[in-house]
Every structure is written in C-alpha cells, then in structure tokens.
Simulated assay, not measured.
Amino acid sequence: MITLYGVYRSRASRPLWLLAELGLPYTHIPVIQGYRLADPKAADAPLNTTSTAYLQVNPQGQIPAYTEDGLVLTESLAITLHIARCHGGALGPQNNAEAALMEQWSLFAATSVETPALEILYIIGDGGDKTPEGQASIAVNAEKLRRPLSRLAAHLSVHDWLVGDRFTAADINVAEIVRYAQSHPTLLGEFPSLQAWLVRCQSRPGFKAMWQARAAEPA
C-alpha cells in the first residue's frame, strides 16, 4: 500500500498530482513543515517535520516521504518517477530511453530552474518587488532563468509534451518547478510555447484536483 507524507503546500504537490492523475489508492498523511508552526514541539502541535513519529520515517525531517512495501523514498522527483515506472501506465516510461529522458528533464528543472524561480517567488511573496533591491534581485534571477527556459521552449515548440509526445510524469515534475516562475509578471510570456505547455499541464484534471486541495490547506 502506498503512503504519502506531506502537505499540498510543499514539493509533495508533485507526487500528489500524479496520484490524482492515476486514481491510485493510497494513504495520505498530512505532515506540515515545522517552521510554519509557532511551537512545533508543543503537545498539541500537528504532525510536523520535527515530530518524533515523522523523524522515524525521514530522519532528515523534510517532506514529502513515500513508503510502499518496505521501500522508503524521501525526494519528490524520485517519488514521482518511481510511481510512474511502477504504476503509471502511459504516464510512465515505456522503455529505457523514455526513463532516461524523464530523469533528465526532472533533474534539469531541479538544477537549472528551481532555485532562481523560487527566489523570485519568495521575493514577490514578501513584497520585495516594491523595493529597488528586490527588483534588482528579481532581474538577476530572471536572467538566470532565460537560458533553461529557452531550452524548454525550443523543445516545446516542436513537441506538445516533454517525453514520447504524450503527457507524462516528466511534465508533472517540470511543470511544478516552472510554476514558481509564474509569479514573475512577464517572464513566461517571453516563451510562448513554454507558456502554452504550462497551461495545458495546469488544465488537466489531476492538477485541478491537487490545486483545489492545496487551496483548502492553511496558507
């Protein structure tokens, strides 16, 4: 039986989106980030990343975590790719080449897109876009994103999806990272094929179900 630990407002959104797409039965155990709580060690604190019970699952105290038949995974991209390989059907790899491409696109997004995209998200979320310093930092991080986003856009100008000309777990992993850059008011508009792909991804029922559940969680 699959058990997924984490809240929707975290990188758990990646496997939760895939699980929604697949309609797989699983147990979801909400685990909130300890830093979001005033006192994560309080007796009445909800299960969180500092809780002894959760640290027995992932001693690093991060979410998400995934268990299935004795297997424990603690990295969201690996979780999503594992679910896709074992349970994903057409959303998973159909051969070794597709598996390699799904891994490549996922790691590419994590290493080339995620950090500057998150920086932009955090700066804007904290109101830093209203200050000269924040605007300068946003500009620096947007420039860091232009090369990897150009690479994605070039691929998506001739393919509707990242792997195998069909929607797969690779699209989920990458879309959930590119989503962070949506906070920038104009950046994705520079890459029409990429922006159109992201709209296609976020129009899927699995994303809508995940996003609705995310919206229902406390911010």
Rank of each mutant, 00 (worst) to 15 (best):
Y122I: 15
T67F: 08
A196N: 06
D165G: 11
I172T: 13
R11A: 13
L24N: 07
V199M: 10
I32F: 14
H82G: 01
Y26Q: 00
G164H: 11
L121M: 11
A38V: 14
S157C: 03
A215N: 10
Q60F: 08
N48M: 05
G134Y: 07
A12P: 04
N58K: 06
L194D: 02
V57P: 03
R11Y: 09
G164K: 04
S76R: 06
Y54E: 02
K130G: 04
S137M: 10
S157M: 03
D165H: 14
R214T: 10
S106K: 08
Q94V: 04
W197C: 11
T168G: 08
Q202S: 06
R11G: 10
Q62P: 00
Q135V: 01
Y122N: 12
A43L: 14
S157P: 00
P25H: 06
M102E: 07
K208E: 10
S157G: 09
L121N: 14
T74D: 01
V174Y: 02
L4Y: 01
S13M: 14
C86V: 11
Y180N: 04
E103R: 04
E119R: 12
A65G: 09
G23M: 09
S203W: 05
E176W: 06
V158N: 03
A53P: 08
Y54Q: 02
L19M: 14
P25M: 09
T50Y: 02
G206T: 11
L81Q: 11
L73T: 04
A142P: 06
L16T: 11
A42F: 03
F108H: 13
Q135M: 00
H155A: 14
P30H: 10
G92H: 05
C86G: 06
L162P: 08
A169Q: 04
R146H: 10
A100Y: 07
G164Q: 07
A45R: 00
E68M: 12
L73Q: 05
E217K: 08
S76W: 03
A216P: 05
E143W: 04
E75G: 02
A38L: 13
P46S: 09
R200P: 01
D165P: 02
L101H: 15
A175E: 12
Q56M: 15
S137E: 14
L4R: 02
M102F: 11
P148A: 08
G61S: 04
N48R: 10
P46I: 12
P93G: 03
S51Y: 01
L47D: 06
L118I: 12
S203T: 00
P116N: 03
L188C: 09
L107D: 13
N58C: 06
H28G: 03
C201E: 10
L4N: 01
I138H: 01
S203C: 00
I32V: 15
A209P: 00
H82S: 04
Q104V: 03
S183Q: 15
A196G: 01
